[in-house]
Amino acid sequence: MPATSTLVLAVLMAVAAGLVGSVAVMRRMTLASDAISHVALPGVGLALILHFNPVLGALAALLVGTLLVWLVERQTRIPTEAIIGVVFSAALAVGSMMASGEELIDALFGGAQALGRVELLLGIVGALLVIAFMLWARSELVIALVSQDLARTSGVKVERVNLIFLLGFALTVALGLRFLGVLLMGSLIIIPAATAKQLARSLGGMQAIAVGIAVGVTLAGAFAAPALHLEAGPVSIVLAAMVFFVSLLLRRPA
């Protein structure tokens, strides 16, 4: 039975993941999102070598990674997906050279270490920040994902809102690092949102379903894993994937 404060953080992290994922999936950056989360690994590796908090290392690496994506999106017309694929797969490789054994497994898939008080508090503040931004900027993000030109003429600062969104994405990945790890946190952002896209007809519906599934599988993982003698993260993601496949059968007619 996990501690209540840890559960609160896990639920807030899942809410943030559902909201960020909804926009990421609607922006058609499903693959990119998964790759961005991999860039956390060299940061974790560096933190382990230099003996500071791996979550901070991950966050720093993610910030650099998202700034890179933002600049590439802004400056060039070459397909972002290709660059993201190459740069971030390389990041994964570099990261795995820097960390090893148990530490690497924890960084990739999440570990069972207890969270410190400061880490908990920062995590909760971070999650609330992401949730507040996603709700506040929802309209701007939606118009920008339909058309950047329409957003611009509507008075949306497109580059700024894109940057904050990517930073929110990075922060969400960092939040999930302790619970799910680098590889699985990308999945908690994308799978519930991809499932919601199959089922929802409206924006509100999409966000509600994505958040509902993300929170549901996170809690189910947290409670079921100890009984099964497994880690919570992988259990949550397997559940999310099962919900996704069921949603394919239930998908709304186009």
Binding site: M26, S139, V142, S154, G155, S202, L203, G205
Partner: peptide, 15 residues
């Protein structure tokens, strides 16, 4: 998953 109302509502919110 975006209705006409969602789309127009987003603009109303921004303007």
């Amino acid at each position: 998953p975006l209705t006409g109302y969602d789309f127009l509502g987003a603009k109303a919110h921004v303007t």
